[in-house]
Amino acid sequence: MNLVAFWIFGGTALLALVLCVTRRNAVHAVLYLLGAFLAIAAILFGLGAPLPAAWQVLVYAGAILVLFLFVLMTLHPPPAMKPRRARELVLPALVAAGNLAGALALVLAGSGGREGLPGYVLPPAALGRALFADAWIGVEAVSFLLLFAAVGAFWLGRREDPPKERP
């Protein structure tokens, strides 16, 4: 992945995210987030991770954000994303700045110079083998997790109550 491609995708992702975080209208924020996630998918592809990049587009941008849009559409009045008053923004600014400072310290001191093998791509077959041969119980656990997340969502979203218990 060469520098120009990184700057293009990185730049679009950051621009889209800064716009997303500052929007007042929730739907606009989610749409900017969609653009940022697609740019990040391109970066993942450049990192030699084709399967995660595909999942990023399919699951993250395709499923999660579309779900966000559905929910936002059903909420009347549409929730205004009004940020809190200025003095309440001090804490998040501090936390974000702290993180950024940590990251800069990280970049300058820690990990410079680790050049990866040029053009290394992890074939999806190897990832598939790792997923289903080595971490099969993780796949089982995650499938139960998704099932019970759906069960929870049905229960929280129910309109009427389940029939009373027969005596």
Partner: peptide
């Protein structure tokens, strides 16, 4: 470890 890179502390 001794020469722990800064991001591991973060």
């Amino acid at each position: 470890a001794g020469a722990a890179p800064p991001f591991s502390l973060l």
